[in-house]
């Protein structure tokens, strides 16, 4: 007697769920679910800009046209390409050195003690100060631009990876030693898999940070790249140009997230 109403409710709930599932079926195809909000955003932007009708807030279609123009002239590819190359270099330097530093600080207490305040200091150094000082001391060049950006990301990578290195499972490392696994094998099969979550965290936040700081470094000391272009448009008060480059930039970052970071992360987490 008591079980029956409960059973019926459960069935009804199940069928409602089923209905929602069928309705949302198309959304379950990941790409649709991702693209719809973007479309809505673009449409809202277009509508709002047309209603306001100001030169300082151009509609989406105008920005797209500007983007097409830049793409056809080849300057979009050039500027995006050079910025992308700088991001890649700074990212690689910051990740490799930051990871090495983080592992050393996490594993050896004396390294941690010696470098802790330095890393905390660097972590809190405003990006602008680091860039300006490196430019002043070492000159305006590609290398100093990349170094100044990497310097901004390095301490946060080190701090994140240090947490991972502290949390390493000593039992598994002992196991590896007892079976006389070589250094390389221990690193590859025992240590790195434990650090992956921390490395992905550092990579994701690092990419976001480096994108932003590379533009500042370009604005201050380079004569090409997205940062330089935005400075030019700023001086001309050309909001359309600024938005066109911003848009291109956002698309590239999203594509990297979808095509590189997420598949890599999925592969690393396969065993879970």
């Amino acid at each position: 007697m008591l079980a029956r109403p409960g059973h019926a409710t459960l069935l009804r709930l199940l069928s409602v769920r089923r209905l929602i599932e069928v309705c949302l079926g198309s959304f379950r195809l990941g790409w649709t679910a991702r693209l719809v909000p973007i479309m809505v955003l673009l449409a809202g932007w277009e509508l709002a800009a047309r209603l306001i009708g100001s030169r300082l807030f151009p509609p989406a279609s105008t920005v797209m046209a500007a983007l097409r123009h830049e793409a056809v002239s080849g300057s979009l590819a050039h500027n995006l390409g050079i910025t992308l190359a700088r991001v890649a270099c700074a990212f690689t330097v910051a990740m490799v050195l930051g990871t090495a530093l983080g592992v050393a600080m996490g594993r050896w207490r004396w390294v941690d003690r010696a470098l802790d305040s330095l890393v905390t200091g660097l972590l809190n150094l405003p990006a602008l100060v680091g860039i300006v000082l490196i430019y002043v001391w070492f000159g305006l060049s590609e290398a100093t631009a990349i170094a100044s950006v990497a310097l901004n990301k390095l301490p946060s990578t080190a701090v994140t990876v240090r947490e991972g290195a502290r949390a390493l499972d000593q039992g598994l490392i002992d196991m590896a030693h007892s079976f006389r696994m070589g250094r390389g094998a221990v690193l590859r099969h025992v240590v790195l898999p434990q650090l992956y979550p921390y490395l992905f965290g550092a990579a994701r936040s690092g990419l976001a940070l480096i994108w932003k700081i590379v533009l500042v470094a370009e604005l201050l000391g380079r004569s090409d790249g997205v940062g330089f272009q935005i400075q030019v448009y700023f001086q001309l008060f050309d909001v359309t140009g600024i938005l066109a480059y911003t848009l291109a930039f956002i698309v590239v970052v999203q594509v990297i997230e979808w095509l590189v970071l997420q598949p890599l992360e999925r592969r690393a987490n396969q065993w879970r």
């Binding site: 039992g171 598994l172 002992d174 196991m175 007892s178 079976f179 696994m181 094998a185 099969h189 025992v190 898999p193 690393a268 396969q270 065993w271």
Partner: peptide
């Protein structure tokens, strides 16, 4: 040559049973 069985199994969770065995050469 020493083979050790620890108190906890201490298998690498991100490697299959076969890979765990292959890794100790």
């Amino acid at each position: 040559r020493i083979g050790t069985v620890f108190q906890e199994p201490r298998l690498l969770p991100w490697r299959t049973v076969r890979q765990n065995i292959a890794l100790v050469h």
